[in-house]
């Protein structure tokens, strides 16, 4: 059985929704970020980057959200197989989500890693403008490839979780994402919320009653978001 090393409302949420959406059994192992457990030797032995998530599998630990999604997709047939004519679409948007949309959004979460304090406002303005361009590209891709971007599936879940965090962060700045500007993604948020696994995961991680259509700050029953 798989073990998902997770922290509430961290990128592990993306994996959790896909696993539960497909009915794949797994255990969770809480990584207590408040105790800096992700920097512990035991966690670093599983994932030397110290990032969350890590998925332990019979073939060893896998890190990186995109890598885990792709491995699960190929192992459990959640997306197009290597010879499928839709494979190029699947792969290019998965990498785009990982190295462009998710990477840019991380910069918004952790501005101090990228700019001095007096540059944070400029940084947010630049990065949020970039993110809105990324969401426009994802909106067009989801419209063109609705099956690949369906709720519960890797690309759909990855995209919609990124919209949740975009609506919530930075906590201290005015909201820069209005999901109603992206009707396809807004419908995806509704569809993801209507799935049976979503309220179960939302309760476990303290995400509130409407984690995607009306996101609010998480209030996890265990563990720490930061």
């Amino acid at each position: 059985m798989y073990t998902l090393h997770y922290a509430p409302d961290n990128a592990s949420l993306i994996i959790r929704l896909v696993l539960d959406g497909a009915g794949i059994p797994y255990r969770t192992a809480l990584v207590d970020r408040a105790a800096r457990q992700h920097h512990s030797p035991a966690y670093r032995a599983l994932n030397p980057t110290g990032l969350i998530p890590t998925l332990e599998t019979p073939a060893g630990p896998i890190s990186e959200t995109g890598a885990i999604l792709l491995w699960l997709s190929d192992t459990h047939h959640l997306g197009p197989a290597p010879a499928d004519p839709d494979r190029p679409v699947f792969l290019k948007w998965l990498f785009f989500l990982s190295n462009t949309a998710h990477a840019d959004l991380r910069q918004i979460f952790y501005p101090h890693q990228y700019a001095p304090a007096d540059g944070h406002a400029a940084h947010l303005e630049i990065m949020s403008t970039r993110m809105l361009r990324h969401f426009a590209l994802l909106e067009a891709a989801a419209l063109q490839h609705p099956k690949l971007f369906a709720a519960g599936r890797p690309l759909g879940v990855y995209t919609i979780v990124l919209t949740r965090w975009s609506a919530l962060y930075p906590e201290t700045a005015p909201r820069w994402l209005d999901l109603s500007d992206f009707p396809v993604l807004e419908e995806l948020a509704r569809a993801q919320e209507a799935r049976v696994e979503t309220p179960v995961v939302a309760r476990a991680e303290g995400l509130g009653a409407h984690p995607f259509t009306r996101p609010e700050q998480p209030n996890p029953p265990e563990g720490s978001v930061l």
């Binding site: 073939a59 060893g60 630990p61 896998i62 890190s63 990186e64 890598a67 792709l70 491995w71 990498f95």
Partner: peptide, 8 residues
């Protein structure tokens, strides 16, 4: 799995 992790 390891290959994908390091490629990403």
């Amino acid at each position: 799995g390891a290959f994908l992790s390091w490629l990403f």
